[in-house]
Write a protein that binds this DNA or RNA. Structure first.
Length: 440
DNA sequence: AAGTTTGCCAACCGCGAGTTG
DNA sequence: ACAACTCGCGGTTGGCAAACT
């Protein structure tokens, strides 16, 4: 039996945690996994009071520390019967000597029945790494793409496993860029290091491209509306920390840049490298180093929503710009990428153009290898295919040469399928329907 | 066997933002 | 318009268990 409880009373502060939470549960189906019981003495309530804010557990006698089975039982029973309602009022009603905050945390991170515990799958790891590269430490946003995983669990898993794995490979976990010392080491991993370098450079270029596309989309929208002043302020403010060339001149007919931004050249070269299967080119390729931090990029992305008071109208204008023949697939691309990134379609009309400007190529073809290497590292050559199934593709010891070339020829396909798998997993997590494979 | 270090994760804390009166 | 309240998020900590010396 599955009982659905709509938990009310939560403010719709973020769209991820939206208006309602569906709880599927009965008490009997829960598997309790209690941590060792440590009885903490009553909280003495000596917290210094912050000006204008009452401490969470200011009352003497409110308990802190690990929850006991009895407390869990009380909390579960109450929520099952009444919903949580006001967290602040819940402890008294449920007969708990806890603050509401503690109750909420216990519920959302542990007791909620729709929580999956245990090992993270390869697919989940892929999603976490990719989303972290895209979203940074926005754990709640990442958690929305990982059903039954809590933000806290994902955060812990990142900090204890994935972050270390990145660091071990010479990648800065916070920027997803390769560390210079790792690249300069002559430890027999030069090929991997070279690849890593360009993977990181791709990340830089991609971030830069995204930032530029945001600006240019805004400028384009402004040129067909009366929002020039706003866009100007965006442009100037966002480039305050980074010297940027002016946006490419707009084609008077199509309203798209007459030539792609310079940063996209790198992406196109990168695309060529992957599609032409010329690994040697990787070593020679010199990509520009981005000066745009991920935080900057995020601000810019957020700026789309902030600056555009009428996102729907903006999206409409953008669609008119697009070539009629390709509107369909561009729209689909935009929806999928927007969905992947955790932004609504209306917030990210520029993404469709970003996709189009890559000549119909995929984000995945650019980014796949980067994350793929991380995942390969975990299991020493164990890679995931588009269905999340594992198989070995990497070179065994002493098998370089022919095997290496075979691997190289497979790499492009691996990378394509890899990103497909990410998008598919993300899409499947956010909608009940299973989308068709998007890329060729 | 005892002591120390490391890994892990549940829980706490403080802050920012939305809501309400 | 403002202050108080409430909630959710992300960073950090505390403590247990396992691994190591």
């Amino acid at each position: 039996m599955v009982e659905e409880i709509i938990v009310h009373g939560s403010s719709a502060r973020s769209h991820e945690h939206g208006a309602k939470i569906i709880i599927q549960s009965v008490l009997d189906h829960l598997e309790f996994q209690y941590i060792p019981l440590v009885t903490h003495g009553p909280f003495t309530g000596t917290n210094p009071t912050v000006m204008g804010r009452s401490p969470c557990c200011e009352k003497v006698g409110l308990k802190k520390g690990p929850w006991t089975p009895e407390e869990d039982q009380k909390l579960l029973a109450y929520i099952e019967k009444h919903g949580h309602g006001s967290w602040r009022a819940l402890p008294a009603k449920a007969g708990l000597q806890r603050c509401g905050k503690s109750c909420r945390l216990r519920w959302t991170n542990y007791l909620r029945p729709d929580i999956k515990r245990g090992e993270f799958s390869m697919q989940e790891e892929q999603t976490i790494i990719q989303l972290h590269a895209l979203l940074g430490n926005r754990w709640s946003a990442i958690a929305t793409h990982l059903p039954k995983r809590t933000d806290n669990e994902i955060k812990n898993y990142w900090n204890t496993h994935l972050k270390k794995r990145l660091a071990k490979m010479g990648i800065d976990p916070s920027t997803h860029k390769a560390k210079s010392d790792a690249l300069s080491s002559a430890d027999g991993h030069s090929r991997g290091a070279a690849n890593l370098s360009h993977m990181a450079q791709w990340e830089s270029a991609r971030l830069e491209a995204e930032a530029r596309l945001v600006l240019e989309s805004k400028l384009r929208a402004a040129s067909s509306s009366s929002n020039l002043q706003q866009v100007g302020s965006l442009s100037s403010s966002s480039s305050s920390s980074t010297v940027r060339p002016p946006p490419a001149p707009l084609d008077s007919k199509s309203n798209v840049p007459a030539s792609p931004p310079s940063c996209l050249d790198v992406l196109q070269v990168w695309q060529g490298v992957w599609s032409d299967q010329k690994p040697a080119a990787l070593i020679d390729l010199e990509s520009p180093t981005s000066t745009l931090s991920f935080a900057d990029n995020r601000q810019l992305v957020a700026g789309v929503g902030l600056m555009d008071g009428n996102a729907a109208a903006f999206s409409h204008q953008e669609d008119e710009i697009l070539d009629q023949e390709s509107t369909g697939w561009k729209s689909m691309a935009r929806d999928r990428i927007s969905s992947f990134a955790g932004f609504s379609t209306e917030e990210t009309p520029w993404l469709s153009e970003a996709y189009a400007m890559q000549g119909g190529c995929t984000w995945g073809q650019f980014g796949a290898g980067f994350t793929g290497m991380l995942l390969e590292d975990k299991n020493s050559g164990y890679c995931a295919d588009s269905l999340g199934n594992g198989h070995r593709t990497c070179i065994q010891e002493g098998e370089e040469g022919d095997e290496g070339e075979k691997e190289g020829s497979m790499e492009g396909e691996e990378n394509k399928s890899y990103w497909n798998s990410i998008l598919n997993s993300v899409n499947s997590s956010s909608s009940s329907t299973s989308p068709p494979v998007f890329y060729n």
